[in-house]
Design a protein around this nucleic acid. Structure first.
Lengths: 394, 394
DNA sequence: ACACTTTGTTCATACACTAGACAAACAAAG
DNA sequence: CTTTGTTTGTCTAGTGTATGAACAAAGTGT
């Protein structure tokens, strides 16, 4: 069933080349002898692999470094502008597009807001953003190395969008459409998975291998980085933790179950509770996360109470996550993360109750990349694929 | 920090040798040309590796097989009796010890029951069982290749038993004690993790790569096989799903939280509910899982109802598991599995409500190895370690 | 009896890494 | 300024493993 990789010298070379390049990426000004030392490879081998990487323009040499008592070494650096990657985060009422270099540095970005658009209207906007970003790309050896799209919905292994309830999408083959139009490698990924990957590559999760990223927006999705890799489950539907039951006899959810987590701890839940309490915000009745935060900042007890309640329920779910995964890090991202100030205390109060073992070396953080984690994540997928296909396999 | 494996020809050989042996194990009567075909390796390479494996007595040749129009091939078979492995499942009120061959076939087993023993008394029994099993081991090229112990508690990465609440154990270094006494490779593992591994290697999960094993006994523990590997989490405490909140305002649990799953779906919960209802079983008042099953079998409505309730709550948790992991298979094991007949319907009723995507290719099974999965699992760990250390690395 | 197939071994070749020799570049001591 | 010793980086010979082809052995089918 699964492909049996047969091991020969070719594989050895690929892996060693990848090892050398990863070392250079990781600790960028680095010398040949240092690489040899730290990888355990022979210095001759390192020399030959480095020279190949130089030819491929994926690294470059800068001037000589400090001598340590002998000939001065040449410094090697990752050529992070050898290519550019495009990442788009399609939200329910916004679209964020970025173009980054190979290290996730954003070169240009575009954000548009909208509401209630049809599929055709959204793809129209999408093409617009992509074209705009393409036009801003500086020239580089490898050009645009791929386009990644993050969507708030369920994506299967073939990268078909099976269902994006809040967009009203069902069985959409966006990958094929974009491949045909742009003739570039396309990646489609669930928004939470992409966010998790973004945080691991460039954000709060850089130094960890077991990370749970909780994307809390209109709904709740969770991205799982286990043993350093994104875990997608059997068909790619893992992390649907928004529909985890935390109250057996709770309210009915549209998923068919009762008492789902996202009924208590999502942005939508917050707004619904605010409505019920008939909270009136400054912007004459226009209820939104932003306006509620403003209200809390101005000292409104009711609004603060609302956030505390949400934090409590957020903590309940995170507790379950900790008991399930024993992760090194839980990252709370997406829109709710902007209310960090009003959530933290109640959240920690609840989740500190978990079995003390699990607490060892566990940290709960809010997103570092904030609203950009998904876009950065999908951009990073393209970079990874590019490195594997173009560099490691030559 | 992490070890950078440098890739050379030696590694290539190891991996190919492992590939060939795994192929032989997997489809035991197999010929050299078949291996070459299916692995993609050159037939000369296969021949040389097979000859080494023959010398190491880990495989053997049987008579010629069927001709397919030419010379008749020699059949190669896994020498499953090249060594024996010992696995012990230490329960709260029982101890099961088995000695198996390399394929998990049980050669001999010993079961004892007890209650409320001190640590010293239990280790006494443990030594007794191990000695007894050692004495029944047939002679074989590699002898006893290791001893594995499964315990109902939290085991960290160094295989120290941090806490086994139902045994009253805390910070026990059983591994060191046994290594000193028997001078054999020792593995200590959490009971649910071992059970999951056992089911994957020899039981219901043989053909799957994403398996969630729910060990439902006095408490509930969960073993996670993700991408074909046991996931242990950062410190080895993953799968503490017994303490997943399913009822925010539910009863207080000794873990400090409220509404934990095992308060509703474990054997203990069943007994507590039976007590509350003052159900009286045949064996004059002696309440137990077995007596309740008997009662249900005899048509007692109240007992049946009790199991249905439990099945419902079991379904709630399994629902959460499905939404979290999108597994191929959920296996319900340990003592509760013996009540399969009375649980299935209510359980499936509840968990069929999950998002339809997740249902694709998902199956919910009861343990095939029933009470033996943990013991078989820990025995399998030793076999794996043996193969890696003794065979693949030569 | 003969042609054709399949099996399994052997041998020359290719390829990647390693160890060590070597030259170039540099620092520090005399 | 010269000498000595060190570090850097390349090059070459040697080693180990997989591959492909040749070949012998053992079959089948006509």
């Amino acid at each position: 069933m699964e492909v049996n990789k047969t091991w020969n010298q070719h594989v050895v070379k690929q892996e060693n080349k990848a090892l050398v390049l990863r070392k250079i990426i990781e600790s960028s000004p680095i010398t040949r002898p240092m690489i040899a030392n730290e990888t355990g490879l022979n210095k001759g081998t390192v020399s030959s692999l480095v020279n190949q990487l130089l030819e491929e323009k994926i690294i470059y040499e800068s001037g000589p470094g400090e001598s340590s008592g002998g000939r001065r070494p040449v410094m090697l650096l990752y050529n992070q502008v050898a290519g550019y990657s495009i990442g788009i985060d399609i939200g329910v009422n916004y679209m964020l597009g970025i173009i980054t270099d190979l290290q996730g540095n954003i070169h240009h970005e575009e954000l548009i807001k909208f509401s209630n658009l049809s599929f055709e209207e959204i793809t129209g906007k999408l093409f617009g953003i992509i074209d705009l970003l393409l036009s801003t790309a500086p020239s580089s050896p490898y050009g645009i190395i791929g386009i990644g799209i993050g969507v708030p919905g369920v994506v299967d292994r073939s990268e078909e969008i099976l269902l994006a309830p809040n967009l009203g999408w069902r069985n959409i083959k966006l990958k094929e459409i974009l491949e045909e139009k742009y003739n570039l490698p396309i990646t489609i990924e669930n928004e939470a998975n992409a966010g998790a990957y973004g945080e691991k590559m460039f954000g709060a999760g850089k130094d960890f291998n077991n990370i749970i990223y909780v994307s809390d927006g209109i709904g709740i999705g969770v991205g799982l980085i286990l043993n350093g890799e994104l875990y997608r489950g059997n068909n790619g539907f893992s992390g649907e933790l928004g529909h985890m039951t935390i109250e057996v006899n709770g309210d009915k959810c549209r998923c068919g179950n009762n008492g789902c987590w996202e009924l208590y701890a999502s942005e939508q839940a917050l707004l619904k509770n605010a409505e019920r309490l008939e909270i009136i915000t400054a912007q004459d009745g226009e209820l939104s996360l932003e306006s509620l935060i403003e209200l809390a900042n101005s000292g409104d007890i009711e609004a603060i109470r609302l956030f505390e309640d949400l934090g409590h329920y957020l903590g309940v779910g995170i507790n379950n996550i900790i008991n399930t995964f024993n992760p090194q890090q839980v990252i709370i991202g997406n829109r709710i993360a902007t209310a960090k100030k009003w959530l933290t205390e109640a959240l920690l109060n609840r989740s500190n109750q978990t079995l003390s073992f699990n607490q060892k070396g566990l940290q709960i953080d809010f997103s570092e990349l904030s609203t950009h984690s998904t876009a950065l994540g999908v951009a990073a997928f393209s970079v990874d694929n590019f490195l594997v296909k173009e560099i490691f396999s030559l």
